[in-house]
Amino acid sequence: MILLRVPGTLEYRNLALRAVSEACRIAQHDEWEGASLEAQTVSALGEAFNNIAIHSYAGRPAGDVVVEISWTRDEIVMQISDDGRSFDPELVELPDLDALPEGGMGLFIIRSFMDEVEYQAGPPNVLRLVKRRAARAEGEIAPMSTRSPARAGGSSKLPSSGRSGSMPRGNADADRDRDPSASGWRMLAVDAGAATSLRKTGTAKQK
């Protein structure tokens, strides 16, 4: 496991990326998918770090970013924590790639490259990203879920304070096939007793 605590400013971003790059090398994950595994994990962590430095700590003194990277033969897990402003994943729209956007692609990159994306608003805000060994279909993006540990009785992997969300992966094309009226995002809200989760599936808008 690699545990890294750095100031939440962009100048420390590359340090975090080097850590996950090294984790991929140690875990021999290159055997999975060649260079793409490292490219995907580095890209996702980079976008997550950007979001914290640019948005979460915007307009306030930058606090720390804690990056925890763990791995097995079958998956690599990155947990990124900060004490800045939280965001609502439900309000983040997927980009319209045909419109050639110049911004707003960070979360899409994260969800596209990761197999599981879970966000818990804090403090601390905790973003948990999982990349699994299993092959995935191109165009598939990770769903995102949100849970309230207070109502759900806590999460085994996330701090127990604040709201949390997980973005499970879904196949957007398949989702559209099942629901022709759906365009872009589709939200599935589940409230099963003590546990509350919000699940989003979708893909970039296509014309």
Binding site: L17, S43, G46, E47, N50, E102, G103
Partner: peptide, 16 residues
């Protein structure tokens, strides 16, 4: 060696 969404944004801006 490495590009992120901010870098892509500049290249897309150039293209447009």
């Amino acid at each position: 060696r490495l590009i992120d969404s901010s870098g892509v944004g500049v290249i897309v801006s150039l293209f447009k």
